[in-house]
């Protein structure tokens, strides 16, 4: 028998998760239920987080946004301010699965499922987003890249869960983008994903850049050298080539059914370049 809990507060949820080692939090369930059905996980308790009011919806926070962890991906599309500020993040979250899946699936779930190929994660890392983690010891704010530990594993302690995804205030002349490579056009998992967020000054010179990659290492990567290669440049082809070199150097993928080392490495560089151009045009359009 599986115990099913619907706590009304963050504290209750944390206590329930802490009480049972195999307990799993549930929001959209698009990963958890599939894993349970296939026998990959057999939790003794499920803690449904959707009934906690703060877990749902998008709020202004510190000039940016706080997105409740149980907010489904398609709900992000309805928030005009969020879409205008962080289009790359919203797009990434809305590449996951199908429309039906995204009506349930959440970014926080995508993050805590800890797949290296999670679409929303590189976009969130590029955007310098943070996760509000709630647990028996209280709250802490953690950079997105520090949540996944390895494929299928997080750095969250027993009883901890992600309550919010926090996106910073967007620079007036900033832009972001996320692209992924899949063999089909949808209903697929990233062979490689690349998220880019950058800020331009009035002359078009890049003053800040973050480049993040998915599916090329055990966890999504922030490639600081790649961002550094763009900063101080006008995003000319040579700068993008240097950025692409840094991306390739950071790739440490595996050969598997979804792609080879060579293909993943080559695509990471190509997608990072293409995403940079989209982010650039968005930043330019904003400035």
């Amino acid at each position: 028998m599986i115990a099913f809990h619907s706590p009304q507060t963050l504290e209750d949820a944390s206590a329930l998760l802490a009480a049972e080692p195999s307990a799993r939090p549930l929001s959209g369930g698009t990963d958890l239920l599939v894993q349970m059905r296939s026998g990959r996980v057999e939790p003794a308790a499920i803690v449904d987080l959707k009934q906690i009011p703060s877990m749902r919806g998008i709020r202004a926070h510190d000039g940016g946004f706080a997105i409740g962890a149980a907010t489904p991906c398609t709900a992000l599309l309805d928030d005009a301010a969020l879409c205008a500020a962080w289009p790359g993040v919203v797009e990434a979250a809305n590449l996951i699965g199908s429309v039906q899946v995204r009506n349930r699936a959440t970014m926080a779930g995508n993050l805590c499922n800890a797949s290296p190929a999670a679409d929303s994660v590189p976009a969130l890392i590029a955007a310098d987003a943070r996760a509000l983690v709630v647990g028996p010891a209280g709250e802490r704010e953690v950079p997105i890249a520090d949540i996944p530990a390895a494929p299928g594993k997080t750095n969250l302690a027993q009883g901890e869960f992600v309550a919010e995804i926090r996106l910073p205030a967007k620079s007036a002349s900033g832009g972001d983008a996320y692209l992924r490579s899949i063999p089909r056009t949808e209903m697929d998992i990233a062979v490689v994903g690349a998220g880019v967020s950058l800020v331009l000054d009035s002359s078009g010179t890049c003053t800040a850049a973050r480049v993040a990659l998915g599916a090329v290492a055990p966890t999504a990567l922030l490639v600081e050298e790649a961002g550094a290669a763009l900063v101080g440049t006008g995003l000319d082809d040579a700068a993008l080539d240097r950025m692409a070199d840094a991306v390739r150097a950071a790739c440490n993928p595996i050969n598997d059914k979804r792609g080879t080392v060579e293909y993943r490495t080559a695509m990471a560089a190509i997608l990072a370049k293409r995403a940079t151009r989209i982010a650039q045009s968005r930043a330019g359009a904003n400035s």
């Binding site: 063999p183 089909r184 056009t185 949808e186 209903m187 697929d188 998992i189 598997d256 059914k257």
Partner: peptide, 16 residues
């Protein structure tokens, strides 16, 4: 068999 499901056994979807 490494791909016994429709995720990794990739039949076309409508948008393809």
């Amino acid at each position: 068999l490494d791909n016994p499901g429709f995720l990794d056994y990739r039949m076309p979807v409508a948008s393809d």
